[in-house]
Amino acid sequence: MPHASPKPTFTFGLGLAMLASLLLLIGGCGSEGGSARSQDRDGSPERPLMVLLVPTESGQTNLMDDYEPLFSAITRVHGLHFDLRMGSSYAAVVEGMRAGQVDIAHFGAVTYHQARRAGVAELLAVAVVDGEAVYHAGIFHRADSGMSRIEDLKDKTVALGDPNSTSSFNYPVAMMLDAGIDPVRDLRGVLMSGSHSASLSALQAGHVDAAAASVSAYDKMVREGTLDGTRVVLLVKSDPIPNPPLAMRAGLGEEVKARLREVFATIHEQEGVRPEMILAYGGALADRYDSAIDDEFIAPALARLGAVTAELRQELADFANRSRPGRRG
Score class of each variant (00 low, 15 high):
T11R: 00
L16F: 01
L24N: 08
L24S: 09
L24R: 04
S31Y: 00
G33Q: 14
S35T: 04
R41M: 09
P48D: 08
M50G: 01
L52Q: 01
E68V: 09
A73P: 10
F82C: 06
G87A: 14
V93F: 00
V93L: 01
M97C: 09
M97A: 04
M97W: 03
V110W: 01
A115Q: 03
R116A: 15
A118L: 15
V120N: 01
A125V: 10
A127M: 06
V134T: 15
H141K: 12
M147E: 09
R149C: 13
D155S: 13
T157Y: 09
A159H: 11
G161I: 05
G161H: 03
G161F: 05
N170E: 14
V173N: 04
P183F: 05
V184F: 03
R185D: 15
H207T: 15
D209Y: 01
P245Y: 07
R249V: 04
K257Y: 00
R259N: 12
V263T: 12
Q270G: 08
R274Y: 04
E276R: 13
A280G: 15
L285K: 13
I293G: 09
A310Y: 02
L312S: 06
Q314K: 14
S323T: 15
S323G: 11
R324I: 14
P325K: 11
G329R: 05
